[in-house]
């Protein structure tokens, strides 16, 4: 008896208490040894990985320590001196470019919105051909899935650099890049959602003579739509963050302005823009999360 876990089995029937304790003692030692082996192996492997990574990335603790105060200086340089008795004038001076920045921020939001909706819509269509259970041929499932995975793995900034070559500077390259990346991410996600739906409504539509398109619109869509909408909002939150940085390479939005401010050492401008971005992102997160939970509650009731 006494089948102990982690593969250590002892096949002695203990008769007396002393024997039972002896069996326990042996098993306990075996456990301690096997634990020790596993733990030390794990620690050595982990330490080796850390050491290797530190070597490859030239991680230098001294440089980090000497650099930290400079980060502090940098961050404090982002907020200009604001005096209490002249606060309004100071703020106006700090936000001298407010009109321009607000306009760029608005463009950024619109890029994120368009990317989220266009990417999600296309992703939803592609996901039909990447799901195993919706009648798409096997080669299409494989091929579309790989394409979606590539679109999801390649960062939107890389797409943006390619599109810049074709369409020149400006938001077009950025919004296409964001849409393409969104398409990949949503398509892969939705393919998984599709594979988990209840197949009975679809069979019902087919059984009364509906076409494949009828199956999708009547059988599938009502099941997955709340989910899709919820994910669209979530994607919008992510895209707002992406759209703020896509301008780093010149593909539209506030990023271009932010990049210039930081690289040309206009720290107070950078601080002003970052604060605007921070507030916008916070507000959008809160609003979008509220809408998302509202939609999923709707789903729970119906």
């Amino acid at each position: 008896m006494a089948v102990m876990n982690s593969g250590i089995t002892i096949l002695i029937q203990p008769e007396t208490r002393a024997e039972a304790l002896a069996v326990f003692d042996k098993t306990s030692q075996a456990h301690a040894q096997s634990n020790f082996r596993k733990t030390s192996l794990g620690i050595i492997a982990f330490a080796a990985a850390v050491a290797l990574a530190a070597h490859v990335s030239q991680f230098d603790l001294m440089r980090l320590i000497t650099g930290l105060p400079r980060i502090g200086d940098f961050l404090s340089g982002m907020v200009p001196r604001l005096t209490a008795d002249n606060l309004w004038a100071d703020l106006v001076y700090w936000y001298w470019g407010l009109d321009k920045w607000l306009y760029l921020l608005w463009t950024t939001l619109m890029m994120a919105l368009f990317g989220a909706v266009a990417g999600t819509t296309l992703g939803a269509i592609f996901s039909l051909f990447a799901a195993r259970n919706l009648g798409a041929p096997r080669w299409s499932v494989f091929f579309v899935k790989r394409m979606l995975e590539i679109a999801r793995t390649v960062p939107d900034l890389v797409f943006a650099l390619v599109f810049l070559f074709a369409f020149g500077l400006g938001p077009l390259a950025g919004v296409l890049a964001i849409s393409l990346h969104t398409l990949g991410a949503q398509g892969k996600l939705f393919a998984e959602v599709n594979e988990n739906v209840d197949m009975r409504p679809l069979e019902g539509v087919r059984a009364c003579g509906g076409s494949w398109l009828d199956e999708m619109t009547v059988g599938l869509l009502p099941q997955v739509l709340p989910n899709y909408i919820s994910y669209t909002f979530w994607r919008f939150e992510i895209n707002v963050r992406s759209a703020t940085i896509i301008g780093f390479v010149g593909a539209g939005g506030i990023g271009m302005e932010l990049y210039e401010a930081i690289s040309l050492s206009y720290f107070d401008d950078a601080g002003a823009i970052l604060l605007l971005v921070f507030i916008t992102v916070m507000l959008i997160d809160i609003a979008s999360e509220a809408l998302r939970t509202k939609i999923s509650n709707v789903r729970a009731v119906t």
């Binding site: 400079r70 200086d73 963050r241 940085i245 780093f248 971005v277």
Partner: peptide
């Protein structure tokens, strides 16, 4: 709230080019 890339840019300006800025 901010994307990795914004922080990376800030750290590159503060402690110089290289992977350390990315790690941070």
């Amino acid at each position: 709230t901010f994307d990795h890339l914004i922080w990376a840019l800030v750290f590159v300006r503060a402690i110089g080019l290289g992977p350390l800025a990315g790690i941070l």
